[in-house]
Nucleic acid binder design. Structure first.
Length: 741
DNA sequence: GTCCGCTCCTTTTTT
DNA sequence: AGGAGCGGAC
């Protein structure tokens, strides 16, 4: 079964000069073993806070410094861009200089790079487009039309999910067996999938799943290509192995398994932190590692340097309730004898009291000198953030919501990118269809359909067909004139792109197409902000050599470089917090139905429950000094108040490591529900309504909104107010949310 | 072709 | 409560 690795009695690399290995000095024996066991398959089971990133980066540097491989002979894979960036930086630090030619990146970025080299084997050309979720959905809806699917019963996003899960499992349409295809859309899902893939090829495009799927398929079917990579990659490093899905696993196995010699693959992960099964991750990959790579060694990193003993004890007690585990016990690696504070479990009356409690404590800690950057509120689901946000605005504590709408997901940014994509790749119909009527050019669904048919008939793209029809005078009226402007703008942009570079070209494009003008004429309060974002986008263009590079970056990275952050309290989901750590962690909403989430329980049964428990484990282990858990007796979900029971996870925390505190809710499960079931909801709502019976507002009056902060009333129509906020721009709002100052 | 209002649904999320 | 999507009115 599982073998525990014993550190070698003598160093593995006799060639390594002693003076050159100072980077190994401050590591514990397990960490050293994980680094010095360079050859053959190795699984590093790295518990939370056990120095995983350090091991990965030091191992990378060790391979280079002992000259086992050149930088381009190491393949290093992560899940997020952030992790890739961090590894790159830390390796550079160890080496004293950035390494050139690294194959270090996310699964998708590395696959995109490979796919550009071998695009023709997938039926694409080198400049293929990577679609975002919007595009995928619009395309799938178009493709679905002929089947006349009842989209009430089988909504397109659901089908897209089915297709994505197939792709996660490495299944091309041809590999989907009929027995797989019974659930969705009356057994038409596979056929629609096939049509969707065909359409993607026509558009010279692929979605995220395709990056993995195409490359894996090429490696499977083209031994010459595979051999090329076998020759190149001597060492493979994989981060967060427990999160890999089946294609990622297949891809890795293809690359790692040579015909001759051992697979020098090192996977680092933690089965206790596997929280992404809902998007295709297979914990089994990590559980099965020894079978996949015979002779594999296993190193366990169990010494935790992050958290206090009470935090570790609470987390360990909780996760012990899970069944299938590789078995690993976190223990403190610290020398300091203090146990720290016990984990605090607080019962509160309702979700408002919860927010009040959390924010009060945060404020108190802040006054005592703890930086807000060292505190985080970790929630199970997005809807929970609102109560905290409202309270924090009232309190005046700076905060940031991590993982809200990101820059590249904003409508104006997507529109502008679509304009650029059409310039870059005229075959990109999805981009063209996105912008053809933005700004309004009098092109509705009917005209669009005509253009599509013309394109299909002439076997070209919609944008080319539009141009041809304009040239031949086949389009008439006002919309023809406006389309002419669009087509001319696209063409002149391509000329400028060739002559004067991409920055000027894009400025020209957004101006001449009328896109910027559309927002300038827009009277809505968001318009100025959108223009500002567009400026920012153009600024970002300058950081890239070509338009193509920029578009690749945008579709793969989907984030802008964060500006230097001021110290702010973070609010984020538990999923978003993985890999991070804070001195103080607030864990609200530990109630049945919320956490564990009812939906996960319904859909995932025991497996779902165990994943929720791992999520709880991830949450607690984010804390260095103190973890505080909260549960409320009633919670407002959507419109109404609902009584709620304490989470079963609270019973699973070992008493020795927790303190229970009652701030208005009962501490005991069951009892609580009795005194609150029917009455407390309406009562609380009534109390709120009375408090909010508010007088009329005057123009120029200073007011406060729970979310947007302080502002001045600039227009009022009965209960509809327009308010210019200090920090949030101008908004139109209902007066019931507004408080006088 | 566009706009407005009614109904429905509501996790987690990276790339 | 609030946003998205769809159907009917102009």
């Amino acid at each position: 079964m599982v073998t525990t690795f014993e550190p070698p009695s003598h160093p593995h690399s006799p060639a390594a000069p002693q003076s050159g290995t100072s980077y190994l000095a401050r590591l514990n024996p397990e960490q050293r073993a994980a680094i010095e066991t360079t050859d053959g398959p190795l699984l590093v089971l790295a518990g939370a806070g056990t120095g995983k990133t350090r091991v990965l980066t030091t191992r990378f540097a060790h391979i280079l410094l002992t000259e086992r491989a050149k930088p381009w002979q190491i393949l290093a894979v992560t899940f997020t861009n952030k992790a890739a960036r961090e590894m790159r930086e830390r390796v550079a630090l160890l080496l004293g200089a950035p390494a050139e030619g690294l194959w270090l990146g996310t699964f998708h970025a590395l696959c995109a790079r490979m796919l550009r080299r071998h695009a023709e084997y997938a039926g694409l050309t080198q400049n293929f487009t990577i679609l975002d979720t919007d595009d995928q959905l619009r395309l799938l809806k178009q493709v679905m039309e002929p089947w006349q699917i009842d989209t009430k019963r089988w909504p397109a996003p659901g089908l897209l999910g089915v297709i994505q899960r197939w792709k996660d499992r490495g299944l091309t349409p041809a590999r989907v067996t009929p027995s797989e295809d019974t659930d969705f859309a009356n057994g038409h899902a596979r056929a629609i999938y096939e049509a969707y893939q065909a359409r993607l090829l026509q558009l010279n495009a692929c979605d995220f799943g395709d990056l993995m799927l195409h490359v894996t398929e090429i490696l499977r079917t083209r031994p010459d290509v595979l051999a090329q990579y076998h020759r190149m990659f001597r060492y493979i490093l994989v981060d967060e192995y427990q999160d890999t899905n089946t294609v990622q696993y297949l891809w890795l196995r293809l690359l790692a398994k040579h015909e001759h010699g051992p697979a020098n693959i090192c996977c680092v992960g933690d089965d206790d932190q596997s929280i992404y099964s809902w998007r295709g991750a297979e914990v089994e990959n990590i559980l099965r590692f020894e079978k996949d790579f015979p002779g594999a060694k296993i190193v366990r990193l169990e010494r935790n340097y992050r958290s206090t003993r009470h935090i570790l004890g609470a987390a360990a007690g909780l996760i012990a309730h899970n069944g299938e585990r590789l078995g690993k016990t976190l223990r403190s690696g610290r020398d300091d004898p203090s146990d720290g504070e016990k984990v605090l479990v607080t019962s509160v009356w309702d979700s408002d009291a919860e927010a009040r409690n959390v924010c009060d404590i945060a404020e108190r800690l802040h006054h005592k000198g703890q930086s807000l950057a060292e505190m985080a509120i970790l929630v199970r689901a997005g809807f929970q953030t609102r109560a905290f946000e409202e309270r924090l605005v009232q309190t005046g504590l700076p905060y940031r919501i991590v993982g809200g709408l990101r820059f590249y997901e904003r409508a104006e940014i997507r529109d502008a990118l679509a304009y650029m994509r059409v310039v870059h790749q005229p075959a990109d119909d999805l981009a063209f269809e996105r912008i053809i009527n933005v700004p309004k050019r009098g092109v509705g669904p009917a005209s669009l359909q005509k253009l599509r048919e013309a394109a299909r008939f002439a076997n070209t793209s919609v944008s080319m067909a539009t141009e041809t029809m304009l040239d031949n005078g086949q389009l008439k009226g006002k919309s023809a004139n406006q389309l002419r402007v669009l087509v001319d703008a696209l063409n002149s942009t391509r000329e400028i792109l060739a002559r004067e570079g991409h920055v000027l070209a894009v400025e020209h494009l957004l101006e001449e197409s009328g896109y910027l003008e559309m927002w300038r004429l827009d009277r809505s309060p968001e318009a100025p902000g959108r223009l500002e974002n567009l400026k920012e986008l153009v600024r970002a263009l300058a950081d890239f050599g070509t338009l193509g590079e920029f578009l690749e970056h945008v579709s793969l990275v989907m984030e802008t470089d964060e500006k230097a952050q001021d110290a702010k309290l973070s609010i984020m989901t538990l999923h978003g917090a993985k890999g991070l750590e804070f001195d103080t962690v607030f864990l609200p909403g530990w109630e049945e139905g919320v956490f564990p989430s009812q939906r996960t329980l319904d859909e995932g049964g025991l497996k779902g429950l165990e994943e929720e428990r791992r999520l709880a484990y991830v949450g607690i282990t984010r804390a260095r000094k103190q973890a505080m858990i909260f549960h409320a007796g009633s919670r407002r979900i959507y419109a109404n108040w609902q009584p709620s029971m304490p989470s079963r996870f609270l019973d699973e925390l070992p008493d020795a490591h927790i303190t229970r505190k009652n701030e208005g809710g009962s501490n005991r499960r069951g009892l609580f529900a009795e005194d609150s079931v029917f009455d407390n909801g309406p009562l609380v709502a009534r109390r709120k309504r009375q408090a909010e019976a508010e007088p009329a507002f005057q123009l120029g009056e200073h007011v406060r909104h729970p979310r947007f902060g302080v502002g001045i009333v600039i227009a009022a129509d009965r209960n509809h107010l327009e308010i210019a906020f200090e920090n949030a721009g101008t908004k139109r709002l209902l007066s019931s949310f507004i408080e006088k100052l």
